[in-house]
């Protein structure tokens, strides 16, 4: 196994093991998502005609804001524990550290997103158990994690990290959010590939571009 893969998988496995033990991020992020969903539940009359219009927006507002909360912890926890230097000193290349962190962030986000499926079903009668929505959510979440992991590393070095991350993150991922909201509406309407395809391709292209850029930039972000 190459240094890159070995390092990325070791960091990924360590992060998932720690999260399985502490459940710190999942519990905090899930509780936040439930609160957001309830607020929307009271703010809008959840009639089918209203939900058809605002439903995709509600889903992605909940996903994006819970994602930010989770991503804020990606490097903040390492920094607060004093373990970030241990990762940076490993002879696996900074891009492997980035890849491991990206994978663990995306996994935790996808897990929380899946937990929210029944919540949306109960509160808004919004059925997200749909292969096209699953593909959109997967592609968009990887895009969020790709950008968010890089900015989380930048923000972790600052005192105002909770403010800085959304300020950096949201303008960059706006194209993904637009694509995800639009294609989620199409997926819920049962449009299939015809409605979802071009947006899915757009999000995947975004993921690929930012994966390359973020991997390259990561080395410069973490050195003092």
């Amino acid at each position: 196994m190459s240094n890159y893969l070995r390092g990325a998988m070791a960091i990924y496995a360590k992060d998932i093991r720690l999260e399985a033990r502490t459940k710190e991020t999942v519990s905090a992020v899930f509780a936040f998502a439930i609160i957001i969903s309830f607020i929307f539940g009271f703010a809008f009359d959840p009639r089918p005609s209203v939900v058809a219009i605002v439903g995709p927006g509600i889903v992605w507002v909940a996903y994006v804001f819970t994602g930010i909360l989770g991503m804020n912890r990606t490097f903040a926890l390492e920094r607060d524990r004093g373990t970030l230097e241990g990762l940076l000193l490993a002879p696996v290349g900074r891009e492997a550290v980035y890849a491991g962190k990206l994978l663990s962030t995306a996994t935790i986000m996808i897990f929380v997103e899946a937990l929210l499926f029944p919540v949306f079903l109960v509160l808004f009668d919004l059925n997200l158990f749909n292969i096209w929505f699953a593909l959109i959510a997967l592609a968009a979440t990887i895009g969020f994690a790709t950008v968010g992991t890089l900015f989380s590393a930048i923000a972790a070095h600052t005192r105002a990290r909770e403010i800085l991350l959304p300020l950096l993150f949201l303008p960059i991922v706006l194209p993904i959010i637009i694509g995800a909201v639009t294609s989620t509406g199409a997926a819920i309407d049962g449009d299939g590939w015809d409605g979802v395809g071009k947006w899915l391709q757009f999000i995947l292209a975004f993921d690929a571009v930012f994966l390359v850029l973020s991997s390259w930039a990561f080395d410069f972000v973490l050195e003092e």
């Binding site: 360590k14 524990r81 373990t83 230097e85």
Partner: peptide
Amino acid sequence: IGYVGHQSLLYDEM
């Protein structure tokens, strides 16, 4: 290189 600094670089929960 091996490094021992001010932090242990160990994870509390492990």
